[in-house]
Design a protein around this nucleic acid. Structure first.
Lengths: 362, 362
DNA sequence: TCTGGCACTCGCTGGCGCGGAGTGCCACAG
DNA sequence: CTGTGGCACTCCGCGCCAGCGAGTGCCAGA
């Protein structure tokens, strides 16, 4: 039916002309079928599955159109059709019927994330392993970013010899600590004095401000007690640098090994590059960071992500909020042939429940 | 020359009868060659490499003996020979000539581990990635175990609402912290009072003892201030459970992806099981724990480890000491075909330097 | 005791033919 | 004009076979 018909349009089918009701339905069935079995879908199979009482020959005509506009492709001449990235995209954007999650899954997720009093680390770990367990793919959760990094409290604890343990509390109960090796021994009272001074002056202040003030102070008073101040500055720097700007943020991942069980990723060299990227973190992190601006679920199919290692993968993400502020992103990484209609609601729900669980006000 | 010779011994060659000077040398050359190239070694190649002016035919006789006593095997009839586990074992135990490390490598390792003032976590991470980088295999370092888990200091810091941050210091500068949600608001002075009390009574005590004393105390006084005490007990439990008994110890691993580049591990299913074991941790940890009793370098070749997933791998470990006490184990995991003569001194040196770097007395 | 020679085994490669799945196109019917 | 049955064609995967190369075991002779 290509262009031997009476149609005046000589340019061949375009998405607009070709994607009538029937073509859409067939594309949908084809994608669903391929996602289920992982094998190229032929016209006979499709005719049976589509349930619209058409012969394989008719189906073939439609398939030829779908191929021409780039929604499906055949690995070789006699091998049925497979969705392309464009095809998946159309499927996800306009054909997808999102299935609600199974009761049992919802219960499982609630149970794991609705924990009273859980510590954030454990929650993030739970979330990522949940995502991986339910989808049989890899789950990933970025560490939440903190908007305001505020100085709260510092404490010096004498250890043996000239060593002192410095404990710096920032924000709502985050703790940094470090053992300092000092030039000489300080009396406990001296340590107390210094921490009193620091706490009195800086409690509640932004940690960057604290840092500059301390440097200023140091320049002015010289010599006196500077060692501990220097240490305080270092810790402040570490705390600020490590947390506030997106520098050095990281993520937790679970279920990477699941990916080895998907036939389409069974090439060792590709797997190596993928896992390399997982441990390198940089690229994955960049991708996740892009999603922090999004409102809801976001999907990258194959090359859409822009990272070569993910060319054969899809990534489904959702930002999670504490209160009203988006603080992190979680998601699932798997082969492009993934059950989007199940993954999307899962990622969505997990993000919402994780956000709720992280909310400190209870 | 099997048993058609003039030898009266009808039982065929045994390790004792067959392993004369020549056979040993040939085995050595064969193993070295196979480790280098990864391909079965034939009699012609071996004759050339051995440098002992023997014809391939003679070599073949010796090889037949070596095969009969189980030191080498052929993958199939016409494919040269490959060392068996037994062969590697003999090679490692009695034939190995350990090469000293290259100057450059030693310098690299020193540079990474001889850091003033580094924090232990970072040192362990350095050590494992060093091991993996130098060997192109996976490096692993167990977290050091602490002999005495002693209560040092507790501090309660009021946060907003009814929340209190509890900070517990154990040993030499290790910090545990937790946010507590309490029934009602405590005055800072009350918090101070409680921490004073706890610190005065328990500083320096073993944390298990603290726990039982606290439980006792709690039963006696009832009701009064029990909330914070309960929290203190919980933290003590967590600190003790997590550290003292080998329960829950863990390890750091680096360079797992290197293993994907070895041809002998290029089966995806095997890789999956291996990586599964790495994330599961249990089996690897058991194996490492066995080595804590050893004095120096220990080697498990193939099935020797006793864990099925490691059947095609060798593990080279060494315990590391802080002061005189062994506190952990580090090592390298790779294919049985690894360059033992380089790995062994590397693991040995790394263990010694890591121990030195972790030593708190400087 | 060593060695050259020889027959043999076995995996690997490439060519060939076949069957099956699936396609594109065409002519014909409603 | 649309849908359908038919048909030739393409291409993959498989089994088969032959040729080769590498390596072996064994034997007879120095």
């Amino acid at each position: 039916m290509r262009d031997n018909g009476a149609m005046a349009d000589m340019t061949g089918p375009t998405a607009a002309t070709a994607m009538n009701e029937r073509a859409q339905h067939l594309l949908k069935v084809l994608v669903e079928r391929y996602i289920r079995d992982g094998e190229p879908v032929g016209s006979r199979t499709l005719a049976r599955d589509a349930g619209m009482d058409l012969s394989p020959a008719s189906i073939r005509n439609v398939m030829a159109d779908l191929e021409e506009i780039g929604f499906i492709a055949s690995p070789h001449t006699s091998a049925g059709r497979v969705p392309t990235v464009k095809g998946y995209r159309f499927f996800v954007d306009t054909l997808l019927t999102v299935k609600p999650l199974a009761q049992q899954e919802v219960r499982l997720i609630r149970q794991q994330l609705d924990v009273e009093d859980a510590d954030p680390q454990a929650l993030l770990a739970s979330a990522s392993s949940l995502l991986s367990a339910v989808t049989h793919m890899a789950g990933v959760v970025t560490l939440p970013r903190l908007e305001h990094v505020a100085w709260r409290h510092i404490e010096f604890l004498p250890l043996s010899d000239n060593r002192v343990l410095a404990i710096l509390v920032i924000n709502e109960g985050e703790v940094q600590n470090r053992v300092l090796h000092l030039d000489h021994r300080y009396e406990p009272s001296a340590l107390q004095q210094i921490s009193n001074y620091l706490n009195a002056h800086f409690a509640g202040k932004d940690i960057q401000a604290v840092r500059t003030t301390l440097l200023e102070e140091l320049r002015r008073t010289r010599e006196s007690m500077n060692e501990l101040m220097v240490a305080a500055i270092h810790m402040a720097e570490k705390a600020a640098g490590g947390r506030s700007r997106d520098q050095g943020r990281s993520y937790m991942m679970a279920g990477e090994t699941n990916l080895m069980e998907w036939a389409e990723l069974s090439d060792v060299e590709k797997l190596r590059r993928l896992f390399e990227a997982f441990t390198q973190r940089r690229e994955i992190l960049h991708l996740m960071d892009k999603c922090i601006a999004a409102e809801r679920v976001q999907i990258f199919i194959g090359e859409e992500s822009g990272y070569r290692v993910l060319d054969e993968c899809s990534v489904v993400t959702a930002p999670y909020k504490v209160g009203d502020a988006v603080v992190g992103v979680l998601g699932v990484i798997g082969p492009t042939r993934m059950a989007y209609e199940r993954v999307i609601p899962l990622v969505d729900l997990t993000a919402r429940l994780l956000g709720a669980a992280l909310n400190p006000r209870k």
